[in-house]
Design a protein around this nucleic acid. Structure first.
Lengths: 190, 190
DNA sequence: TTCATTTTGTGACATTTGTCAAACTGCTAT
DNA sequence: ATAGCAGTTTGACAAATGTCACAAAATGAA
């Protein structure tokens, strides 16, 4: 478990054994079935999750329609930062696409570790930087690229998504209808 | 000048006088004419700017076409975090829309201040959080909303943009052509 | 397996947005 | 004032994507 955490955090900030121990301390483990939720619309998100096994889909519901905002593959941190920071009910749903396992902690408790362990604040800084960069690149893709180009980009940059996620979810992640994605796929293989 | 910096940083993290003094130390002032650039495509961005007067438009060029990614009103920090972090040439252009003034510092120097002044790291953490949240909300707007709804949202949430930026730039910020924006506006006033 | 359910694909047509060319508007510098 | 220019609007048509209805294929539970 702690190796998994280390393999993830090392990408942002190298923590020594003591720091890792402190970081993992507030977390408790849980396992969850396919289609299970770790966060549902309407509650205020005060948790930080660390996905240790499985794939999570995040989605919003607009006019009865599910709009996938992202896919998260273990190992990774996961939360609704907007709901957590604003203390407002989330509009986000976090659902496992397959049986999985995760750690869960009170977000405040983890942030508070930064007081005595500056490298944990550093870690969060780097992690937010990363979120910001990835988010910016996705934004640009919506402006620069058409649906087909966005699909091809996903194909080359995140092949695991194409391989392991139902097309209907990929379509809404790309901002198009499933029929349109189906036609794009048909066009590409020709 | 330091009051302007304080008014901005206070939104993220309250710094005392000493901390503010340290923060401002690496910066030098500059003034700039309308249409002047503080960053141009192709260079590696190693600067952090603090806009003290004026409006900056950020844009990319794709197939000879300018695609506006955002507008920045004084007072605010501004940089290309992606180019800075990756040490790769930026694709971004930062251009003043009117005569303005700004501070400029070596980004590394400012980050280094965090070593001895943890609240400056805190400030950056909060600032990235903010960037992430704003970015996420814009992403969602591209998925949830059509062009007209995005325009109306901009109208209510950032009226200063509507009031002070040429429509052609607003159009590309919304991800549509100027003609389309013109038609949306016509439709709305009816 | 078999059957029911979920997921994906297809056709016909509607809507939204883009493209191009031209006209219009209003500012700004002489 | 006015000539020139940057910015905006309009019309006609094209291309991309959405909508709806249904068929085909894949998946999963008994």
């Amino acid at each position: 478990m702690i190796e998994l955490l280390k393999s993830f955090t090392d990408k942002f900030c190298k923590l020594n054994e003591e720091e890792l121990g402190k970081l993992i301390h507030p977390f408790v483990t849980a396992s969850i079935k396919k289609k299970g939720f770790i966060l549902e619309e309407g509650v205020i998100c005060d948790k930080l999750f660390f996905i240790t096994k499985g794939i999570v889909r995040s989605y919003y519901v607009k006019d009865g329609e599910e709009i996938t905002s992202n896919f998260y593959f273990a190992p990774t941190f996961l939360s609704d930062v907007i709901s957590y920071k604003k203390k407002e009910p989330t509009m986000l749903n976090l659902q496992f696409l397959e049986d999985g396992e995760y750690l869960s902690a009170n977000f405040d408790d983890v942030v508070a570790l930064g007081e005595s362990t500056p490298r944990i604040t550093q870690l969060f800084l780097k992690f937010y930087e990363h979120l910001y960069m990835v988010g910016t690149e996705r934004q640009l893709s919506f402006i620069f690229d058409n649906a087909e180009q966005r699909y091809l980009k996903l194909f080359t940059e995140r092949p695991k998504v194409i391989a392991s996620v139902p097309q209907q979810f990929i379509a809404s992640y790309l901002g198009i209808k499933r029929e349109t994605l189906s036609r794009i796929r048909k066009k590409i293989v020709l």
